[in-house]
Design a protein around this nucleic acid. Structure first.
Length: 444
RNA sequence: GCCGGCGUAGCUCAGUCUGGUGGAGCGCCGGGCUGUUAACCCGGGGGUCGGUGGUUCGAAUCCACCCGCCGGCGCCA
């Protein structure tokens, strides 16, 4: 990398060379220059303590009158929280400093002053934090979650690529529902009705006839007025589809992938997990995962005194109770036809159930992945579309896929924020997003 | 969509039951302070009490409607 960056014209080398976490590890007496933000400040007359934050951590900077030029001392005195500063000085190992290390400042420059008192501080309420999310994301906790999120996705991509899946990018504007009509965001597409996609599944099913094993990672949109800690209106959807694959094949992909994601976070993010006061046990996500059928799930619930009518989906209570029975994520397989979407493949022996599965996380977190085998026969798919009261015209191109060399295939969709929510035991799924979108919130 | 809660200073809240000139802590501003850890001490400014209408001599407070957000359910990843 060229040291003379495009920023060089702005001044004496703005390019950042050192992060706080590195400075914390440097030997006594090292000369350093740090660029960051003032997280907090304590003034004692001729001595000021700054807590300097950057993306990697926080370090105390001691600014003494007489040691730094007077003008710079006064700048430090008047700088409000979250002012951006450049400081240079000497690393001192001092037990009086937090973490035992501080910078004795010799030069200080306010690069970007805070024009107002920074509104985010400890003790603010949920509404205020969410209204000021654009400022709140500066907190070390949010930064840690976002770093982990990036590594989780990176691990997922690496694993899928290593298994021969090819990434595809699918449209977000669509004309027909994948799941059902009620949950689509309708938009005006130059006078025509269009919708925001709720899944890329159908496009991936098309793509397997070209690329055989594909995946995509992009947002899906659900116009559900769901006020719960596990719903977003916009969420990142990791979906994959494989040609020549039946139910059990895709279940193996799901469990291996999830394990790779958990392992990826475990191996890359100990610092962040520590900051979040979390311990991850990768063995608790190690395949194989238990597989219970929908029918078996009903029996378990029945033994616990919870009656579910055959054909009904599980509610929040049922999922929670069921997930208490398992230490690892577990599959609930072979759902009744009437509980699931039309494209799921009915089972050969028992056509009342589908060859599909939901993956539920233990500890009451509920569904994080849904998937299964798709109908690949033209007539069977047409029949199921009609049975569901849908118009085959709306699914013309999707049906077309069954007319030219159709093969058994399976796929799944994984909710990225759901996985993070479960893995990091977050209080709310919105904590897994930089700027969450919920029914009541599209700002900031 | 349904059930519940909340809305008073920049923030966190008290005051509402029982109507009578709006308060505290923190932040901010001014002063002091050379080892703090959410520093501390002294002083100061700061409000359409979510909105509209009503009752009343008088409404943050009582009534009606509306708006916004939070928690849960249903639905889903």
């Amino acid at each position: 990398m060229a040291r003379k960056s495009f920023l060089a014209g702005l001044g004496s080398g703005m390019l950042k060379k050192l992060y706080v976490e590195d400075a914390l590890k440097m030997p006594e007496g090292s000369e350093v220059e740090l660029l960051g933000w003032i997280r907090n400040k304590r003034i004692h007359g001729g001595l000021i303590f700054l807590d300097l934050r950057d993306r990697s951590g926080i370090i105390q900077v001691a600014v003494k009158r007489g040691v730094v030029p007077d003008g710079e001392f006064e700048q430090a005195e008047s700088a409000l929280r979250e002012s951006a500063v450049r400081v240079s000085g000497t690393v001192r190992h001092d037990p009086r400093a937090p973490n035992g290390v501080e910078i004795r400042c010799r030069r200080l420059e306010v690069i970007g002053p805070s024009l107002d008192d920074f509104p985010i501080r400890k003790g603010v309420k949920v509404k205020f934090v969410l209204d000021n999310r654009h400022l709140h994301i500066r907190s070390p906790r949010v930064a840690a979650i976002m770093k982990i999120r990036a590594r989780l996705l990176s691990a997922a991509r690496n694993w899928l690529e290593s298994r021969g899946f090819i990434e595809v990018n699918c449209p977000s504007f669509i004309t027909a529902a994948v799941e059902g009509g009620a949950t689509l965001f309708e938009i005006d597409y130059f006078g025509r009705k269009a919708y925001l996609t709720q899944s890329s599944q159908f496009y991936q099913e098309a793509a397997i006839y070209s690329l055989e094993k594909v995946y995509s990672l992009q947002p899906s949109f659900r116009a559900e007025l769901s006020r719960t800690r596990r719903h977003l209106t916009e969420f990142w959807h990791l979906e994959a589809e494989m040609a020549y694959a039946e139910l059990e094949d895709i279940l193996k992909v799901i469990e291996e992938l999830l394990y790779a994601m958990v392992l990826g976070v475990y191996e890359s993010s100990q610092r962040e997990l520590e900051l979040l006061k979390l311990k991850i046990d990768p063995d608790a996500a190690k395949p194989p995962y238990p597989r219970i059928s929908y029918a078996e799930a009903l029996e378990i619930l029945d033994r616990k005194g919870i009656k579910v009518r055959w054909g009904d989906d599980f509610g929040a209570d049922e999922e929670r109770e069921l997930s208490k029975e398992f230490e690892k994520p577990f599959f609930v397989t072979y759902w009744p036809r009437e509980a699931k979407a039309f494209y799921h493949m009915p089972d050969r022996e028992n056509p009342d159930v589908c060859r599909n599965a939901d993956l539920l996380a233990p500890g009451g977190f509920g569904e994080i992945v849904g998937g299964g085998q798709r109908i690949h026969d033209y007539d069977q798919l047409l029949e199921r579309i009609r049975e569901n009261g849908l118009n085959p015209e709306d699914y013309k191109w999707y049906l077309d896929l069954r007319k030219y060399g159709s093969v058994p295939h399976s796929g799944f969709g994984l909710g990225v924020e759901r996985v993070l929510w479960w893995l990091l035991k977050l209080p709310h799924i919105r904590d897994a997003c930089l700027f969450p979108r919920t029914p009541a919130r599209v700002y900031p």
